[in-house]
Amino acid sequence: MPAALDEIIEELRDTDRQERIELLIDMAKRLPPLPDRLAHFKDEAHRVPECQSPVFLVVEIDGDRVRLFADAPIEAPTVRGFVAILVEGLDGATVEEILTLPSDLVERTGMPEILGMLRVRGLHGVLGRMKMMVARAAAVDAASRDRAN
């Protein structure tokens, strides 16, 4: 797991429920807005369908690194906070690092203790969708490099 993400998870794990919520809110407030050049990607194709709130993910491949951008409403701080964890912890990671993220990442961040087991579905959706988009973007990138060769 990328060190940046590992660090965030460590920090979250070291807290009780109340502190974890505070941390999550801090993360949610820190999530940078989508850059203007990507603002038009707030569309259905970039929306996470598993989330009730409008959550948008944009993935770019830059050399061997993944650039990650996201938007989620501040009125849904839990999901926005989780998205912010992914952006802060994974922006600049390699494709390989993202595709091999453990499938229990949501549990490792301690979200079930905040949300209860019932409502972590949307977060799994965010993680699954992000992996899928990274895989797709990497494939498109590889194909375009093949063509260029």
Binding site: I21, I25, A28, I74, P77, T78, G81, G116
Partner: peptide
């Protein structure tokens, strides 16, 4: 709330 962190905001 639906969102468990909202109250704390």
């Amino acid at each position: 709330d639906e969102d468990a962190a909202l109250y704390h905001m």
